[in-house]
Design a protein around this nucleic acid. Structure first.
Lengths: 230, 230
DNA sequence: CGCGGTCTTTACGCCCCCCTTACGCCTTGA
DNA sequence: TCAAGGCGTAAGGGGGGCGTAAAGACCGCG
């Protein structure tokens, strides 16, 4: 059983949805996260790796269907769809695109929470272990959004933290340049690998014993980077 | 992965439901099983261990809610609830009693099938992912994109890795020169077999005990190469 | 308006990866 | 026995990716 509360990312452009869903999730023992558009939502999934996602299909910047498809390329957790429309074809399409459930608006918040519980239940065993991620004397506490080294707090800028968090969530898996760029800078900068070189360098200066011989953030030439955790 | 068609048990006392759901499931590639009452349904789950269950809450002999609870004592597969009533409290109760999904009647058969696919899908993806591929003391972890030999990490370049991964995925099958060249270098270099000789040689230098007597990557003269896995 | 921190952009040297060429060995068949 | 072709190995050169430094741009703040 994890110590921290399950994180639920709500992707919706309507403020009133957030206004009543946020407190409801909070009261039900979850930690609500908020995104108001598709791009922001995708970055939220990549950066925070929530335990479940609630996605409204009607978004201002991109089609909710595409958000779903893109999210499924790297996210395996439960995704619940909200939609005002009740066309059956849309339901079928969403479910076949990887959605776990589909609710029509207006919906009862009790039903939403119940469906969320049902979706989380079957993923319960597959949940990522909570707590800080360690690599040598470096600790990354995703809940507190804090990085320490040998117990002392390391000052990291927002972008540095986002990049480090995304790497740490990989758990030794290789993350491609594109993965990292899209997660931290958005899809518009998916090829600006120079950003990565600069920020990876800065992180190594702050975290590695010998930045020229990195042991925490490894380079996989031509492909990407990986975070080595204990 | 089962070869036979997924078995779907439908527990419902209304003949017309079976009459149109049975053929629909059959046409969608499933093997429909039928039960007309609660007791019979529970026996069916225990005897046939279906891949999923569709359960109507309105049954003649016992409350559908109790069928659900009893079923969950020994059955872990997906259970979809059907119900004529649309009381939210009933939905919540059913979902919290272990149901995976809940549909109100009347429902579209397309939606039911889509929700069934969604429920079966995440069950399939919950299976353990394939582990690393082994050959002697060499391990190739396709998930982490990492190659080790006797536990130590082996440095491989992108092209070397692509080639090795393609070979390893063959699982002992012979892969022709053309197969490998197209996979790694693209169709434009489908005849540059010298590329293969060089890179196969480099891989053998890094992986084989005696590169002159290869045991991991075998040569099939004039045809191609094969990867020998345990 | 000035200032500090952060992000972006440019510049540059180094190293490694990929491709290429060369050559010797082996097998095959005339 | 000799020629031919496929295979394996070695070595070098060109190009591009990587790391690093540092300057310029863009904030929020006082």
């Amino acid at each position: 059983m994890s110590i921290s509360r399950p994180r639920i990312l709500v992707i919706d452009d309507e403020p009133q949805i957030h206004r009543f869903l946020g407190p409801a999730l909070d009261a039900a023992g979850y930690e609500p996260l908020r995104a108001d558009a598709g791009q922001e939502g995708l970055r939220g999934i990549a950066l925070w790796s929530p335990d479940a996602v609630v996605l409204d299909l009607g978004l201002p910047d991109m089609d909710g269907k595409d958000v779903l498809i893109r999210a499924r390329e790297f996210y395996e957790g439960p995704i619940l769809i909200l939609s005002a429309r009740d066309r059956e074809a849309e339901k079928i399409q969403a479910l076949d695109n990887g959605a776990n459930d589909y609710l029509e608006k207006p919906f009862g918040v009790g039903e939403l929470l119940a469906r969320l519980r049902a979706a989380l239940r079957q993923r319960a065993s597959a949940r990522a272990p909570a707590g800080p991620i360690r690599s040598g004397d470096v600790e990354i506490d995703l809940d507190k959004r804090r990085v320490t080294r040998g117990g002392a707090v390391v000052k990291v800028s927002p972008k540095e933290y986002d990049l480090l968090a995304r790497l740490a969530l990989g758990h030794g898996r290789l993350l491609t340049h594109k993965d990292l760029l899209v997660a931290v800078w958005g899809a518009a900068h998916a090829t600006d690998t120079q950003y990565l070189r600069v920020f990876i360098g800065q992180l190594r200066q702050k975290l590695e014993d010998d930045p020229a011989q990195p042991k925490i953030i490894e380079t996989e030439p031509g492909v990407g980077y990986r975070f080595i955790s204990d």
